[in-house]
Structure formats: structure tokens, C-alpha cells
Computed example of a mutant assay.
Amino acid sequence: MHDGNVITAVLIFLKRTLSKEILFRELEVRQVALRHLIHFLKEIGDQKLLLDLFRFLDRTEELALSHYREHLNIQDPEKRKEFLKTCIGLPFSAEDSAHVQDQYTLLERQIIIEANDRHLESSGQTEIFRKHPRKASILNMPLVTTLFYACFYHYTESEGTFSSPVNLKKTFKIPDRQYVLTALAARAKLRAWNDVDALFTTKNWLGYTKKRAPIGFHRVVEILHKNSAPVQILQEYVNLVEDVDTKLNLATKFKCHDVVIDTCRDLKDRQQLLAYRSKVDKGSAEEEKIDVILSSSQIRWKN
């Protein structure tokens, strides 16, 4: 029999025969046995004795984490929320404390949103729920899933509502990149192209607008294509990709003919334009456009 198994067997016997206080005192000076008992209690899920042990040993952070893990066994959202509330203020590290607080706040929000949306859906009076019935509850879902849900069903809501994506972003300090990525995925899935456009349009103090994408326009293009965006929409965003090689690759991959043609013209790359001519349909507007460019005397080709 392995030494560890012997220790565990002895500990089981002692656990049954000794009072907690005596057992804990004896183990305090026997670190190997103590580690085995902690492991054993975690294995069998004896949370109460484990908490008592950590309390006795004054291992406060482990005590807090062990108590916190109990929430995983609570299925009822209201009860889970109330239990998480008891975890706030326990002696966690600063990072863990923030995580527990966020988890409590998120579940609190989810319960409110879920009740409201279930009512809206069952009433049949809200278009978004009629067109796109919910596939699952958002209770106990991760933050990013909740944000996607909010961007899908509650995108235009004012910041003052719990289900507003902007409210979620501010409350949970969601980085711009993550917010934009999630909002883009949700609005593109709904084919809400105006919302997509607004997501990347910024205005400076002089009133000039420009497009800006914290995730990079190449990512925007990939997500738009995945959601079957029309070619006109794709072309607009492919054109915003700064790196020329990436732009050409994306334009070729997604058949954004005008972007490929215009880029080859701007690069004065006759050979690449000729090669691309063979990829467009015979007699198409694209072929005609290429022929006009190739026959132009205004362009000084580099090859």
C-alpha cells in the first residue's frame, strides 16, 4: 500500500474517533498528514470540516476560497446570488474580491434581465423576441455571453437600464476591444449594418468623422463575412485595412473585385491585374473595368 493511502486510512480513522479540536491540534504539527487531510476533505466534499480546519489554522484566504466554491453546488439562481453575497467581504486577495463582487453583480443583473425578457417573449409584443426567440436562459452565463445577449436583444436601450450593453461595459469595465468584438458579432448576426457602421464611426471635435477599429479592420472583415455581409459592405471594410498585402489577400479571398482592381491600379501592378482578370467572369463589369484600366495611357505601370 502506498504511504499516502496509509496516511489517508489513518486519518479517516482519526476523523471518526477524535474530536475536531484534538485532530486539528495534532495535525498542525504534522504537515504531511495535514496536507493529506485537506486533499481528502476536498475529494469527499466535506466542506464544513474543511472550513473548520482552515479557520483553526487561521488560513483565511483558503477558508474564503473554500467557502466560495460552495456556490458551484447551488443551482437555484436566487439562492446562488444570496450565497455569493455572503462571500463578499471574505478575506480574499484584492483580485479575487473584485471577481466575487462582479460575479454577484452579474448574477443579480441576469436575474432581473431574465425575468423581464421572459415576460417580453411570452407576451409576443416585442419584435426582436418574435423574430429571434431566445435559445437559452442567460442565468449563470459568463460576462461575455451576457454582453452578446445584451447587444443582440437590447442594443438601443439607454444606459440607465440593467440590460443596456453600455451599462454592462461600464459596470464591469469591459475593455473597448472586447466590447467592439462582441457588439460587432451580435449586430452582424442580426444583419444590422447601420449599427455596425456606427460602431466604427468616430467624430472629432471639428465634426469630421472617420472609421476606427480597436480590433483591426481585418478582424471586422472576417466577422462580417462569417455573417454573410453583402459584398458592398465587405468592400467598404476591406478598403479600410491599412496593410496592402492583407487588404489584397482579404479582397481576393472574399471576391471584393473592385478592391483588388483598384489596389492593383494604385500599385501600378499590371501583372497582378492581368492575373486577376482571369479570375473574374467573362463579359462582367469587372472584366470591362480591368480592360479600361489596362488600356489607359495615364498609368505608368511598374511591370
Rank of each mutant, 00 (worst) to 15 (best):
G160C: 06
R219H: 15
R118Y: 11
D102P: 00
F92L: 06
A198C: 11
H225W: 15
I12R: 10
K173N: 09
E28C: 12
A150H: 02
L248G: 01
E70Q: 11
Y153I: 07
W193P: 01
Q271T: 10
I223N: 03
E78I: 06
T8N: 09
T263Q: 04
F24M: 03
L206W: 10
Q232W: 09
S93F: 06
D266G: 09
E43Q: 14
A198V: 11
L34T: 10
K15V: 06
Q298L: 14
A183N: 00
R177H: 09
S122C: 09
G216H: 04
S93E: 06
N303S: 13
T17L: 14
K302C: 12
H99T: 12
A136T: 13
A98Y: 12
H154N: 07
A9C: 06
L139A: 05
D3F: 14
T201L: 08
V196E: 03
L107G: 00
L84D: 00
P133D: 09
A251D: 02
K20F: 11
V244C: 09
F152L: 07
I261Y: 05
K302Y: 10
A229Y: 04
S123N: 13
I138G: 04
Y155G: 06
E127L: 15
L273D: 01
A251I: 08
L51P: 05
T146C: 07
L53D: 04
I38W: 02
L190Y: 03
V180M: 02
F200M: 05
R80V: 00
S284I: 04
E62L: 09
R191V: 02
T246P: 04
Q31L: 15
K85Y: 06
N239G: 15
L37W: 01
F172L: 01
A98C: 10
P175M: 00
S228H: 14
L120M: 15
L224S: 00
R16G: 14
K253S: 02
T60M: 11
D102E: 13
T161Q: 07
Y155V: 12
A64T: 01
L51D: 04
D102C: 08
L90P: 04
V29K: 13
E236F: 08
P230V: 04
K210M: 12
S163M: 10
S19K: 14
H154R: 07
G45R: 03
L37F: 06
T156C: 11
D46T: 08
K42N: 15
K255P: 01
T86A: 08
S66N: 01
K15A: 10
E288L: 11
L234N: 02
P165T: 07
G216M: 05
L206E: 13
V238Q: 01
G207K: 05
I38E: 11
Y68M: 05
Y208G: 13
Y237V: 03
N167Q: 10
R177M: 11
V241G: 02
E159I: 15
S296Y: 08
A9I: 04
L72Y: 13
M1L: 12
L34Q: 09
K169M: 08
E127Y: 13
C151Y: 05
N140Y: 10
Q47W: 00
C151G: 00
A115T: 08
S297Y: 12
